[in-house]
Design a binder for these strands. Structure first.
Lengths: 147, 147
DNA sequence: TATTGTTATACTCTATAACTATA
DNA sequence: TATAGTTATAGAGTATAACAATA
């Protein structure tokens, strides 16, 4: 006899962090799947969104806004530039202002649509009046200082 | 003049998923730091908690409860067994029931204490009456079916 | 001095595929 | 047929360190 349904006692069930991690993993896996269809990773799509809204932004600022370190921005920017999705113009001797190419704008529009539908699908059950409170709660958690 | 404080427009700021990911990343980074002091990874500590509460559980069940695939449980179990934290007794020809050794129980107790303090530090600002609702919300998000 | 950008490197988590053995 | 466990492999994100060039 197969007893697949044996319920385990989960001492982590009362930890908010445990559920936060599980929820984030599920959301990210779905997002990755949605964006893979247009050959973008979540981090790449987020960067395109930010560049679209802030033309001329440097990769350092994009990284700071998204929580991605400088060292990890370099290969991503190189990838997007090689695909012809973004272009750079020097703003001073060491920085480059990034902007979307025509193709980059088209891809970014698709990414935006997919990301919005994705977010709505996962968060659609949350009453609109509670979403801002949830966002504020999550933002506060993200900014909790580390001891 | 350095303009570090230029505020970028973030089109993702209204997406719950964006903040969910940032919050989870911050929490996980802190948890990893807390557990590194007792030489445990978050996934290992979670597994020890589950084995402590369910002696004789198989690694497959631990994986299912934590969202870790069979293939990724194997090396973790081998690591914990090699350190002498867990031991296994055959339950049938293909499964092994896992339990904590004396040393494993001691480490698990430390892990539990650290994880509870960690969770309390991040979630302490949330009114107790709202925590269950937040957990329920996150659990629902985690179970949202993927299209 | 601080910041930008880059390269190299390593770790963790996750994912799939393929295989053996057992229920 | 389904499940348990293993092995190999790959991808993605993240982290630090070190360096050159510029502010």
């Amino acid at each position: 006899m197969t007893r697949r349904s044996t319920t385990l006692i989960n001492p982590l069930a009362g930890h908010v962090g445990f559920h936060l991690r599980r929820a984030s993993a599920a959301v990210m896996a779905d997002l990755a799947g949605q964006l893979a269809e247009i050959a973008l990773r979540p981090a790449e799509a987020s960067a395109l969104m930010l560049i679209a809204a802030n033309p001329g932004v440097t990769q350092s600022k994009v990284g700071r806004a998204l929580g991605i370190q400088r060292a990890n921005m370099a290969p991503m920017v190189a990838r997007l530039a090689e695909r012809g999705l973004i272009a750079g113009a020097p703003v001073d001797g060491r920085s480059t202002g990034l902007s979307l190419t025509a193709e980059g704008s088209a891809i970014a529009a698709q990414a935006r649509s997919r990301m919005e539908q994705h977010d709505a699908r996962f968060m659609g059950d949350i009453p609109p009046g509670e979403r801002d409170a949830l966002i504020a709660r999550l933002a506060a958690v993200a900014k909790t200082r580390t001891v």
